[in-house]
Design a binder for these strands. Structure first.
Lengths: 355, 355
DNA sequence: CGATAACATGTTATCGATAACATAATAGCA
DNA sequence: TGCTATTATGTTATCGATAACATGTTATCG
């Protein structure tokens, strides 16, 4: 399993880093002048500028952003705290974050957390702060103690923080998909398909997202003058396995169900499979709609109608928001906390409309 | 969609960072002593240690790793260059990387690249270096110019680099899944199931992974005394859509095919779907096996046999490797470049064995 | 023609820590 | 008792940049 190859040695070249001093010396100017050339927009004569630039090029000088961060007391780096990189969501969100950060000239310092205990959270935040991050993005489901921590300690964090996919809360800036809106879209769509006996398979009620989606389902039905009793809803845990199980339960307590809104696609795909196994025709006998629009949904048989979250946009918005906050603080302005919501969209496929 | 909330202002608190000087002053010792207390293992009397620790605790002092990095000329930070966070793979790999980095006391500085041009790559590496990263991990498919860049410029990078999922190459340290081994496992399994007319749907031949998987398929068949002509293989582009299309093509040129090894699960799921549509029974008439073991594969109908890459382990191994290299360099030892391979495993499900 | 503004450049202090060196106090031992 | 080792602590220089201030040189204008 370990294959030694070639002896090509990558070694010393231990030539020290080229510093601003070296450049200054070589160009016959002061370090300050070099600094001015590097940072543009300051008085430097055309001649000197060219000379310095030539030396910079020739010596391959790259300023140490470390030193710059130290002296400027800001790093152009954002801390990103993630939990559960294993779920699909964060990956696309990260993509949006990475792109936008890059665009706005920020680097990302990542920290993955495995457990939610307060000490842990504070350690991680401290370690980010000790790197002088200019702001912190929080991408983690809202469960356990994370929430109680907020009330106590958030105000102690000396840089802006933005929370992704978190329940809006006073004094906290967050960016989230509008799960309620998505659930309404989904449920309305089922109604539009002529269904009226609509069940729901929810995610774990400890998750805000699950709660919101369920609320969207209930509200829509009630607004339409229909009932949405508790027994028409079963709780899963987002996993395929739990979807299968939940569906079995639901169809027993609610046998004449003609439409079901499932809390996420992973569970919804299991529902399709399980329906097939039981000989229930989709969408004829049962219309199914999911949430998340995972790639496979489009290619399942039948393909799955769903709600698409714009996770890329979520990440982009989060970075934009935090950068605004950082700039505001830089200029010593007041910052109002705010909650931004990203609208999801309805994706109609075979599982709700007969082809 | 922007909802202003509360006026709770998160402001100044602009109390400056507590520095080592403040602590030293408060404890009535020199900064050096404080530094010694913070870094353990140096001569400090019990009394002083306790006193300093108390002050540290009380003032909430956290050393600036920025300053430490500058003065020590190392940052305990790894640069991570990713491309295509949008694919599923990197996400799990990142998970392994994040965990292990954390465990070994390193932070991660992320850079996402969007285009492969040499200038771009060098900029990104430079920007990581200017943050004093101790090493760089490269997670990007091997396509386009990335490879030519290696030969020229790799030796100029002054810190260790480890490449993930890259074709082994002299003078380069890499960690990759053994795609060939995986393909052999898959193809052998089809043979074990009694199939002998085995086709292949490959990924794009510009990808090393695709090439290796195809080679595994061909080699296994030939070793078994069977033929593996070009016309029994069609090239897709990893996407579901391309899988559907490729299968259509393949079944036409190779109508009596009784088993197919598909380059990835995404395409394989489309094959299952398409087979179903054409009334081809899986696995009775056609055994199907994929590669990657994406979560949905287990819950498809029929569930998909596949090859499981241990991406978490891939990430872990990469970090371990680079940390070894960093330490070796620290101690001024020679570093031999090496290629490590992670063995994938066979996952047998319904699509290859009748239930 | 002298004063003021705009331009060009250099000097010194600083960011927050550690390294390297220096010194002082105690302990152990011949 | 005197000498070296060990322990404990302080001083100064340094990492690589920028900020703040100082100074000198041209323009510009009334």
């Amino acid at each position: 399993m370990l294959q030694e190859q070639a002896l090509a040695v990558t070694l010393p070249d231990h030539k020290k880093r080229v510093t601003i001093k070296d450049v200054a010396l070589a160009a016959g100017v002061s370090t300050q002048t070099v600094s001015r050339v590097m940072n543009k927009f300051s008085y430097v004569s055309e001649g000197t500028r060219k000379r310095v630039e030539a030396v910079v090029e020739e010596m391959g000088y790259r300023p140490s952003s470390l030193a710059r961060s130290l002296s400027q007391q800001r790093s152009y780096t954002l801390g990103v705290i993630t939990f559960g990189l294993k779920y699909i969501g964060p990956s696309q969100t990260l993509n949006g974050i990475a792109d936008t950060a890059d665009e706005l000239g920020y680097m990302l310092l990542m920290k993955e957390i495995d457990k939610f205990n307060t000490a842990n959270i504070e350690n991680i935040i401290d370690s980010l702060l000790s790197q002088q991050v200019d702001g912190i993005l929080w991408i983690a489901p809202e469960i356990g103690e994370s929430h109680s921590w907020l009330d106590n300690s958030l105000s102690k964090v000396p840089v802006p923080m933005v929370f992704l996919a978190m329940k809006p809360r006073d004094g906290v800036t967050s960016v989230a998909t509008d799960n309620f809106e998505g659930a309404v879209l989904a449920t309305k769509h089922l109604l539009d398909c002529g269904r009226s006996k609509i069940g729901h398979i929810a995610g774990p009620m400890t998750w805000w997202e699950a709660e919101e989606r369920k609320r969207g389902w209930r509200t829509t039905l009630e607004d339409a003058g229909l009932e949405a009793p508790e027994c028409h809803c079963v709780e899963g845990n987002w996993s395929s396995a739990s979807g299968e199980h939940a569906f079995g339960q639901l169809i027993e307590t609610f046998p004449d169900m003609d439409g079901v809104f499932v809390g996420n696609d992973q569970m919804a795909l299991s529902v399709l499979r399980e329906a097939h196994r039981r000989g229930i025709q989709v969408p004829e006998q049962l219309a199914v709609i999911g949430f998340d629009n995972i790639p496979e949904s489009a290619f399942f048989y039948p393909s799955l109608s769903t709600i698409s979250q714009n996770l890329q946009l979520l990440g982009e918005t989060a970075v934009e928001t935090i950068v605004e906050m950082i700039q505001a603080r830089q200029e010593n302005q007041f910052i109002e906390t705010q909650s931004r919501f990203i609208s999801p969209s309805l994706v109609i496929r075979e599982s709700t409309s007969p082809t």
